[in-house]
Simulated scan of single mutants.
Amino acid sequence: MEETSAGGLVVDRSGEAPRGAVIARLNRAGRVEWCLPKGHLELDETPEQAAVREIEEETGIRGRILHGLGTIDYWFSVEGKRVHKHVHHYLLLATGGQLSTEGDPDHEAIDVAWVPLPELDQKLAFPNERRIAREASVRLLDSA
């Protein structure tokens, strides 16, 4: 079974140091994991459109895509089925909104926080998302 999702890192550059919006979710074991917002594409959405929508739904922050950050793929099992998931990630610049999980229709996000970019390596639960966050930092430096 194949699944496609999109999301990424929305960054606020209005303060002294750039910071990214990340969400907390409960994993299957009931532990909190901080991760990048993401979700499934709907109907005929492009990955870019889905990323913008999902990030706003899960964080409350509207953003504009600056760069693609790559695709992560991994396998997992659910209800006895093997799933191959592809997640397209993007770097977005925050354009408005306020941190909130209230717009998340699936109620997967239990918390949301702004995290200074250098601290994302310690905050994010998954190595592949830490790599995406490092790539986002490099892209921001290159565009500064």
Score class of each variant (00 low, 15 high):
residue 81 K to E: 04
residue 83 V to D: 03
residue 66 L to F: 05
residue 86 H to V: 11
residue 96 G to P: 06
residue 37 P to H: 06
residue 32 V to A: 10
residue 60 G to E: 03
residue 16 E to P: 13
residue 41 L to A: 02
residue 86 H to A: 08
residue 67 H to K: 12
residue 51 A to F: 00
residue 107 H to W: 13
residue 50 A to F: 04
residue 21 A to H: 05
residue 91 L to Q: 03
residue 69 L to M: 02
residue 89 H to I: 00
residue 19 R to P: 09
residue 29 A to Y: 13
residue 46 T to D: 11
residue 82 R to P: 01
residue 58 E to D: 12
residue 103 G to E: 03
residue 45 E to D: 04
residue 42 E to G: 11
residue 106 D to Q: 15
residue 97 G to V: 11
residue 87 V to W: 03
residue 106 D to H: 15
residue 77 S to W: 10
residue 35 C to K: 15
residue 84 H to F: 06
residue 41 L to I: 00
residue 20 G to M: 07
residue 68 G to C: 12
residue 27 N to F: 09
residue 76 F to C: 10
residue 86 H to N: 10
residue 17 A to S: 14
residue 69 L to W: 06
residue 102 E to L: 11
residue 48 E to S: 13
residue 24 A to P: 04
residue 85 K to R: 14
residue 60 G to L: 03
residue 97 G to P: 01
residue 67 H to E: 15
residue 67 H to P: 12
residue 73 D to S: 14
residue 73 D to E: 12
residue 75 W to R: 15
residue 28 R to C: 00
residue 53 R to C: 05
residue 52 V to A: 07
residue 73 D to R: 13
residue 69 L to F: 05
residue 78 V to H: 04
residue 92 L to I: 08
residue 106 D to N: 11
residue 24 A to W: 04
residue 54 E to Y: 03
residue 47 P to Q: 04
residue 49 Q to G: 15
residue 38 K to L: 14
residue 39 G to H: 06
residue 51 A to I: 05
residue 63 G to P: 01
residue 59 T to E: 07
residue 49 Q to V: 07
residue 72 I to E: 11
residue 101 T to K: 03
residue 83 V to W: 03
residue 68 G to M: 10
residue 93 L to K: 12
residue 100 S to R: 00
residue 33 E to S: 11
residue 88 H to S: 04
residue 90 Y to G: 01
residue 15 G to Q: 07
residue 98 Q to A: 15
residue 66 L to C: 01
residue 91 L to R: 02
residue 31 R to M: 10
residue 61 I to H: 03
residue 92 L to N: 07
residue 24 A to N: 03
residue 17 A to D: 10
residue 46 T to A: 12
residue 46 T to E: 01
residue 89 H to A: 02
residue 31 R to I: 00
residue 49 Q to C: 08
residue 98 Q to G: 00
residue 34 W to D: 07
residue 65 I to F: 02
residue 79 E to R: 06
residue 82 R to G: 02
residue 20 G to K: 01
residue 43 L to E: 15
residue 36 L to T: 06
residue 98 Q to S: 14
residue 60 G to Q: 07
residue 24 A to S: 01
residue 77 S to Q: 14
residue 49 Q to L: 06
residue 76 F to A: 09
residue 96 G to F: 09
residue 46 T to K: 05
residue 72 I to C: 08
residue 56 E to R: 15
residue 94 A to Y: 01
residue 68 G to A: 13
residue 97 G to R: 00
residue 66 L to S: 06
residue 58 E to A: 10
residue 43 L to I: 09
residue 100 S to F: 04
residue 99 L to E: 03
residue 71 T to A: 09
residue 43 L to W: 13
residue 36 L to I: 05
residue 106 D to Y: 13
